[in-house]
Design a protein around this nucleic acid. Structure first.
Lengths: 204, 204
DNA sequence: GTAAAAAACCGTACCGGGTTCAAATTCTTA
DNA sequence: TAAGAATTTGAACCCGGTACGGTTTTTTAC
């Protein structure tokens, strides 16, 4: 099949659109840039842009995903769902200190957190994840508490992510932010396992 | 001041718009009804409608609110934030069995849960609540776990609400749904206090 | 290499949510 | 009852998103 010229071109176009969009949004603000401008700057028609990205916010949000439900269904035998999730996020936090495109990630975060519309999109994604996690937990035998647990795990992860991103965008060096994140992953899952009564009175 | 004729008229208009909107949305679907139609059916211009409700979804969502942060800041001396919240929601669940406009509530729920746009609006409201609760908890001395706790309480309450509404809209009688809700409030707050390890293996 | 089929692209026109603005209407108040 | 403030209105407009028909590009088959 000689690698498909068509495929390559499509990938290239998609990447270019997304890149141009992020740059423009960062320079002039998400709301102040119209999709027409993005399309024009990317050398493409508006219809084509919407053919690649179903909506304006997908220009920014299509990159961010995370499949927590799979972590539960594919966990090792005998491991509790909560342990599997803890291990998963422990690994992610550790990876955070490795090499990654901090620059690009930061601008993306900056753009997202400065636009209510994009934040709403993130919330929606979170809720979808929560739902999938709930069904995975129900199948894992979590009983009546499955939906509650899914909601609380999702909330915890969201909170940790926000804190991490907030530190990064306020100048905390990547290594320190990563270390704090690792700490907080343990804290969060300890709380999920043993509850808030276990730290009553802790005011570090 | 003779009660202000102007004020009365405004209230009346606002109520009429919101009522007409909910009815139309319920009859033909939120997306299929344009704001022009709502305005016309309410005997008012589109601009006026947007003067009362800043956006289409506010026509449905302006009714739903809940101030959890106030529960924490106004709690009795010596009472822990979590206890105050538990008591608050215990009360709400008990109230659920009292008299209330079940009919109107049900159509509102039906409309909301059948529209992604409205659901997204609900998520945004939740996140705003979470933020306020977090600052209230931080002032209450919850330390590092304040944001985590706020997230998890909000998630728990959201889950309970969803379950309650789901039961109501699938024909479960109000009394039974209320009783189940009361049970689940206790379950949820027990989990928040003592963690999921306390029920490991529970498969009722 | 070329012709036909398929896929991507484009311009244009359109729809619905939301805003702006100046003019017209309605209530208040003196 | 007249001045003045608040509300309402129509019309024009912007932007995100879709529908449609026609044009270009890539593939595939001969």
């Amino acid at each position: 099949m000689m690698a498909g010229l068509r495929e390559r071109k499509k990938e290239e176009t998609r990447r270019r659109i997304s890149e141009v969009a992020l740059r423009l949004f960062d320079e002039r603000g998400y709301d102040a840039v119209t999709v027409n401008e993005v399309a024009e700057a990317a050398g493409v028609a508006k219809v084509t842009l919407f053919n690649y990205f179903p909506s304006k916010d997908c220009l920014v949000l299509d990159a961010v995903k995370d499949d927590t439900a799979a972590v539960v269904t594919a966990r090792a035998e005998g491991q509790s769902p909560l342990d599997a999730l803890r291990a998963h996020y422990r690994g992610m936090a550790g990876l955070g200190t490795g090499e990654m495109d901090v620059e690009g990630l930061l601008t993306r975060i900056r753009v997202i957190s400065s636009s209510p519309a994009l934040l709403a999109g993130v919330y929606q994604t979170n809720m979808a994840q929560r739902y999938e996690l709930a069904t995975a937990l129900a199948e894992a035998g979590a009983g009546r508490a499955a939906t509650l647990m899914a909601g609380q795990v999702t909330a915890a992860v969201t909170t940790l992510q926000e804190a991490f991103f907030h530190r990064l965008s306020t100048g905390v060096p990547l290594e320190e932010a990563g270390r704090l994140l690792e700490e907080e992953v343990e804290l969060a899952f300890d709380l999920l396992e043993h509850g808030f009564s276990s730290i009553k009175g802790d005011e570090s």
